[in-house]
Amino acid sequence: MNLPPKVTERAFQRLAQINADRDGVPLRVAVLGGGCSGFQYDIRFDQPEDDDLILESEGQRVVVDPVSLPFLAGAVIDFTDELIGARFVIENPNASSSCGCGTSFSM
């Protein structure tokens, strides 16, 4: 059995800040075909579906659909605040390579 993705405390804290005035809409992390390396991440706010995996901490939720789940096995969903900008990032052990934009990868 593959390990589910993990969400860092920092990512949940940032989600709580964003959701302070948004009614606690979950953050959806999905994998789509396309992008410059074959797959790309789709990170957006979205309502959960019945078959989603829900990762929850302190009232904040991150949801992953069952199709994306195998691509995110063992991945770490984090939040980074760097010179290039503040954003949610995914450290994915399944990705064999990724591109400079950080949203596209191959397996």
Rank of each mutant, 00 (worst) to 15 (best):
53 L>A: 02
4 P>S: 08
97 S>M: 15
48 P>S: 05
80 T>M: 10
26 P>F: 11
46 D>A: 10
98 S>G: 13
32 L>I: 02
55 L>E: 04
52 D>N: 11
27 L>S: 08
44 R>Y: 01
43 I>E: 01
46 D>G: 02
10 R>D: 12
83 L>K: 14
26 P>M: 14
40 Q>L: 02
62 V>T: 05
35 G>D: 00
69 L>F: 03
18 I>L: 11
75 A>D: 07
18 I>H: 13
95 A>E: 05
103 T>I: 08
80 T>Q: 14
42 D>R: 02
86 A>E: 15
38 G>S: 01
20 A>Q: 15
55 L>Y: 03
95 A>Q: 04
31 V>H: 05
6 K>M: 14
69 L>C: 03
41 Y>P: 00
5 P>N: 06
62 V>D: 04
9 E>M: 09
12 F>Q: 08
13 Q>L: 12
34 G>R: 00
75 A>P: 02
57 S>G: 01
82 E>M: 08
72 L>S: 04
23 D>Y: 08
1 M>S: 13
14 R>K: 14
83 L>I: 09
50 D>A: 15
24 G>T: 12
76 V>N: 05
63 V>H: 03
26 P>I: 12
96 S>P: 02
22 R>V: 02
27 L>P: 05
74 G>A: 11
88 F>T: 13
24 G>A: 13
26 P>A: 13
67 V>K: 09
27 L>C: 10
64 V>G: 02
76 V>S: 11
48 P>E: 04
89 V>F: 04
41 Y>F: 03
74 G>V: 09
54 I>W: 07
77 I>L: 11
45 F>H: 13
27 L>I: 12
57 S>V: 01
25 V>R: 14
74 G>L: 06
73 A>N: 13
26 P>W: 10
45 F>M: 09
32 L>D: 10
5 P>S: 07
46 D>L: 01
105 F>M: 10
54 I>N: 08
16 A>Y: 03
78 D>T: 11
3 L>V: 13
89 V>W: 07
19 N>H: 10
26 P>Y: 12
71 F>E: 11
28 R>A: 15
80 T>P: 01
61 R>H: 06
95 A>S: 11
12 F>R: 07
39 F>G: 00
101 C>I: 03
29 V>I: 15
68 S>K: 01
104 S>W: 01
105 F>I: 11
93 P>Q: 08
81 D>Y: 08
26 P>T: 11
27 L>H: 12
49 E>H: 04
99 C>P: 05
88 F>S: 05
84 I>W: 15
56 E>W: 03
94 N>H: 06
19 N>Y: 09
47 Q>P: 00
54 I>C: 10
95 A>Y: 08
92 N>H: 09
29 V>P: 12
1 M>R: 11
27 L>G: 10
49 E>Y: 01
98 S>L: 05
95 A>P: 09
40 Q>D: 00
46 D>H: 10
12 F>Y: 15
17 Q>W: 08
